[in-house]
Amino acid sequence: MEMNRPRYSLAIMIISLTVFSFLIENMANDYILAIVCFTGINIVLAVSLNLTNGFTGLFSLGHPAFMAVGGYITALLTFPAEKKPLFLPDFPQWLDSFHLPFFPALLVGGCGAAFVAFLVGISVLRLKGHYLAVATMGFIIIIQVLLNNADTITRGPLGLNGLEDFTNTYWVSGWVIVTVYICWKIKFSSLGRSMLAVREDEMAANALGVNLFSTRSFALIVGAFFAGIAGGLWGHLITALTPGSFSLLMSFNIIVMVVVGGTGSITGSVLAAIIFTLTIECFRPLEENFGIYGVGEIVMALFLVLVLIFKPSGIFGTEEPDFVMGKHKP
């Protein structure tokens, strides 16, 4: 019986998310719905970044850049043709004919992000530790500059707007389940074990026949795919996209979730994403009543530093906690 505990946990998660989505779509107001959707998107982001950063020990800050790639591709593919003359007057004609429904557009966006990750990976994955962090930080800035200057397609700094509001809790829950499931499968496969081996001791892993470069590339590409999906969901939730949104600050926010939850722990990332998204919103009344704007960010940052001091591996470390796993330890 105990052997199947993770499977039960997954089933429970799927059922409860479905019921939850149904209830909340019908009962809550738009604000609550939007918070729930952002929480879900943050879960997708945190779990997928955990795949890259937590499992393999790559320290990539580039998640927002992949989100931007996925977000813009999805948005341009779903943009209603009749709105194009008003909203995108300079849009190249030959691109006009590409139009897709939301789901395939999301997949194309995700694949686009993954492809960019592949190209980035070839060049920067030789770097390690915070040198990789710095290179990917540079990558965020480069993507921002390019989006800012590609006026005809992206409308530059103004960004795109008037996207259809496709994203709802059903879409988000669906992608949360897919992301968690795939990352879970990867973590407990032989591939996942080689990833963890690369993180712990790459020389030993290499000696045992793990191909360092392809393992790392795989982690970066899969992470980027989900970041691209999250970008598409994000854009169609807000209905607008600007290059400025995909900044270092956003990267920081996602990393906080991964680090606090535990680098390598999927459950940790999920919980941290939920706690952080909700906490920031809970600080709003406080900020508004006392006019002390920015306190939420200060407390978040303080909390991060405290976690790093007292529990550097995060709340759950690399483990999945007992209430998900049962006594079964792979």
Binding site: F59, H130, A133, L249, F252, I255, V256, V259, E297, I298, M300, A301, L302, L304, V305, L308, I309
Partner: peptide, 10 residues
């Protein structure tokens, strides 16, 4: 490095 990012935001 992450901690210093946090301190910077603070």
């Amino acid at each position: 490095f992450i901690a210093s990012l946090g301190i910077s935001i603070m």
